[in-house]
Design a protein around this nucleic acid. Structure first.
Lengths: 129, 129
DNA sequence: AGCATAGTTCGATGTTCGTTGAACTATATG
DNA sequence: CATATAGTTCAACGAACATCGAACTATGCT
């Protein structure tokens, strides 16, 4: 089932700032920014249990900061860089430029990239042929 | 008594973002930015009682977003624009550029500026001479 | 001195938040 | 079919938050 993502023109500054005010979520956004492409949930370095991870990623999606889509049993997450930059020019640059907070982001695990996701999609397509 | 203001190098991004994630406090910061100089508490347009106003202004000061000082019975508040811009370049510009949130900021009351504050100080000096 | 004004503090209240473990769903694989 | 993996939901918990009214403090003025 499709996840709801707020459209670009409905992005709300207080919601975005609230989502980013939590150190965990700020760290997630930094990891996604550093990655450039999409990351699977399990490859993100997030403190706490899977419930906590699900919670934080949902807050980020509902604020409009990330795009999420399922591929098989995995969910891939990507920063909505273009949307955020268009709606609030300079905000992400300013937030991501801060290096003092980098110390609190744990080292990212080996990432499952969108390449793996596409491979999974290809396998599914081959099977239905 | 002097109020504690975090020094520039101790400004913390999550705390700043948390302070700004509340629509009331975001509105206060916009008013102070538009004003340019310092504003007395009573001249800020803030929803709720004086307790609420005191609460929000304290959160902004403790996050390091504003500078506060007493003059007589009034407290004057000013945005720490230079400190914030030095510590997180572009952040305030991006936050203040958002026009969609402007609709929720009530019209600012006639401001008591620092000119009035200086007049009060002058009167006090004259009296002690 | 008393009075007025600005602002603060405190405890209370209801709400929101981050976190968790148990139970669950969906997909992929053999 | 069973099993494994990824991810979700729910209720519970303790903490944090925004708001308020009553009571208070500090300063300025007469």
């Amino acid at each position: 089932m499709l996840l709801h993502h707020p459209p670009r023109d409905e992005l709300d500054l207080p919601s975005i700032l609230h989502a980013l005010s939590d150190p965990q979520r700020l760290g997630i956004v930094r990891q996604l920014a550093a990655q450039g492409g999409a990351c699977a949930c399990y490859s993100l370095a997030i403190e706490g249990t899977k419930s906590t991870r699900t919670h934080h990623l949902r807050v980020l999606r509902e604020a409009g900061l990330i795009h999420q889509e399922m591929v098989g049993t995995s969910k891939f997450n990507a920063l909505r860089r273009a949307d955020i930059d268009a709606r609030f020019p300079g905000l992400l640059d300013a937030v991501l430029a801060d290096k003092a907070s980098l110390a609190v982001a744990p080292p990212a695990q080996a990432n499952a990239s969108l390449v793996d996701a596409h491979a999974a999609v290809a396998r599914a397509t081959l099977r239905s042929a």
